[in-house]
Nucleic acid binder design. Sequence first.
RNA 1: GCCGGAGUGGCGGAAUGGUAGACGCUGAGGACUUAAAAUCCUUUGAUCGUAAGGUCGUGCGGGUUCAAGUCCCGCCUUCGGCACCA
Length: 853
Amino acid sequence: MRDAHYNFKAIEAYWQQEWQRQRLFCVTESADKSKYWILDMFPYPSAAGLHVGHIEGYTATDVLGRYKRACGFNVLHAMGWDAFGLPAEQNAIATGVHPSINTQNNINAFRKQIQRVGIGIDWSREIDTTAPSYYRWTQWIFLQFFKHGLAHVENKPVWWCPKLGTVLANEEVIDGKSERGHYPVERRALRQWVLNITAYADKLLDGLAQLHWPEATLRQQKLWIGRSKGARVKFQIPNGGCLEVFTTRPDTLFGVSFIAIAPEHPAVSQLTTDEQRAAVQAYQASIAAKSDLERTDLAKNKTGVFTGSYAMHPLTHEPIPVWVADYVLMYHGTGAVMGVPAHDTRDYAFAQMAHLPIVPVIQAEKESPLPFCEPGVLIHSHEFSGLPTDEAQERITQALVERQLGEATVQYKLHDWLFSRQRYWGEPFPIIWVKEVDYQRLLQCKNSPLHEFLPIQPVTYEADGMKFYAVPLTSQHLPVTLPKVDSYQPTEGSTTPLQNADPQWLNIRINLATGAIEPGVQGASTEWIEGSREINTMPQWAGSCWYYLRYLSPHNKDRLVDPKALAYWGTPDLYVGGAEHAVLHLLYARFWHHFLFDIGVVPTSEPFTHLFHPGIILGADGNKMSKSLGNVINPNDIVDQYGADALRLYELFMGPLESSKPWSTQNIEGVARFLNRLWRTCIGPDGELSKNITQDEPSDDSKRLLHESIQKVTDAIERLRFNTAISQLMICLNGFQKEATIPKQSMEVFLQLLAPFAPHITEELWHRCGRTEAIVDAPWPKADSALCVSRQLNIPIQVNGKLRGMLVVQVPAQETEVIQAAKADAKVAPYLEQKTLIRTVYVPNKLVNFVVK
RNA sequence: GCCGGAGUGGCGGAAUGGUAGACGCUGAGGACUUAAAAUCCUUUGAUCGUAAGGUCGUGCGGGUUCAAGUCCCGCCUUCGGCACCA
């Protein structure tokens, strides 16, 4: 292969094949080398193929990986597929073809695309969340949650999306629409699996402190967890019992002029007097008819109706009117609030609407209009008057505790994680539902293998007057694979496509003593209990919560992750992926990892200590790339036209990695020219190494340029400022070309610097220079800082901060000499005449500034 | 509404408080060519001036400093996030 012109197609194909053949990027634990683990958020293999945005991220990590490797690190860079999820299932519904077929096709296309841009991946570690050998461990982790009482079943109002035929987690609902597909959602009460993430709220919050993450992402997680300290306060109500409210401002307790409860609050009908019943019921009906979007519209005026009842203030014993108001949300706190109009904006608006008293109980430092929502000093608050907010909160809470009418508590915005979907293409739950009597028999059979994941508190649900108990299958039953079904069509209510599976799969019996399972209905006996399988599947997030761990020992059959591999690789040194996962994936995965830490599976509590979000690549029109706008760039077309190296180089040259930037096919010409110029510089018209590449010693100027480039490129890669690294490489090549000849040793160093960005062309030229090892395995060049300093410098001379002249000085320059010369400079002197020199600022090797009057 | 990021030539963007606009694109002029493409050279912030050179200039208004794109205060625009969370 001795092309005279830059035949990127042949070069790229050849080296990609060669790297594969040599298994160049396959790594193993190696005690004599430091590890560097670089992790990309693995993609969902969509039918649309890899996006230029994916490539930007993978190229960035590849550049870092190749660079670290040249620096002597043992670099782990693996790839996998987050392949469960709705689009494959929607396709299955439309075509009747099993989602796994479609998924495998997409995976093959994605893998090929990634290989085509030359990303250095250890493909021996490839994982696929839909492979039974993988989801066996997803199911195993679920069973651990189950065993530790963190997974249970609730019949609760959930977001139901009729179009998708499934429920969605809070996080998957945006403005009353599904995150995927933007279909309307509604509230429905359904039986659901729930993971108790709120039990980890504090750990997830506290753990943020040790993370090197973008500030905005840390803030988003913090706000999402939404920890608020406050108190629960009981207001006694007429027919006995209490109305409990949550407040973060117990210090304003004496300013309560009403209590507002959510329209769905269970105490509404008890509290409603006969005179008010019609009005309250009409109000409830009007709220029920509204969508959540309408209800939560901030701009709307406050509404509500009086129940006719009064609750008793816990400290003053005064009667407080109880209102029903839809600005109170049933799903937060207790679904009831104490209205303190003087010190809460919402309560203030409500009180004005309802003509309720507004009693100030907090004094502001200076005159402030009501509502005043800041801390201050208490007034009109009996013995607590005069106390500052923070002290009053403690004292008043204490007073409530003494009367058993309140307690200090912490409330989270974070809700438990809705963990089941009424769909087909997801991990089946390894759970069997049995009757109460059978569960009791299981409990008595103390040596049963089925106790492996049995929780202390049974997980149950009731239907048609029957109570069902969840029995966890054992490790030996895993994986529970997806059965074949005739129809993937989503269903109404709480049935799911798995309901259509073979009854032999749906109904099984389990041997209490041995844990053996047999298909179909065969009747119970002394040894066997009968049950039916859970027919929900897990949400798409499940598989992505722990995939990175599997990269460390992807083929291990006995363990989720090999502890030896874990001890060597630790946690990823850098995790790169989109900011759109700031709360969803990153919070869920942290939760799982914290839990795995608690049960001793992993040695650290946090999975991702260093995180980076690449910016989005927009269409040439500045809009987000989308089919409907017709501004989508297909990376395959770019690779065909300009080559993978040009694509890689351009994507990183566009701008800083973290910022969003528009695509410009015109600008890619620039980097393509740069690569062509490099080729022509190295290869002569005969296809051999150019005559201009010589064994000469480099000139001082070119030596300085090279070492300056080593320094700048190295520093830029370390700081992920790839765009400036590339510009320095362009400067370097421009400089080389000004010389009559280029020393081969300089060119080889230049190729090494460019290699992480444009691995194919540099590998080719490197070998044509006569080198035999892979360019990534040549040690990264070191800058000689002594060579970087120029012997001559241009020193700007300012007068009163304005540039007036330029001085050329020899480098070890004496201050007095420089200043003398500066004063004497023909362009500067006139500005100093007739003036008094007040001050002379001299910054060595930088500038001179004369301050005159 | 609240919280955060960002505003620099015709465009993408550079610039540890120290020569604003590196590098690239585009445009203009030129060389090579029968011609074109490719390539190479010159030039390309605005403005005044024949020129030397001057003045202005990093969203707007102030401030700190010998010196501000960079730091501080107050706005505007824009992009994200949250959105009655008590």
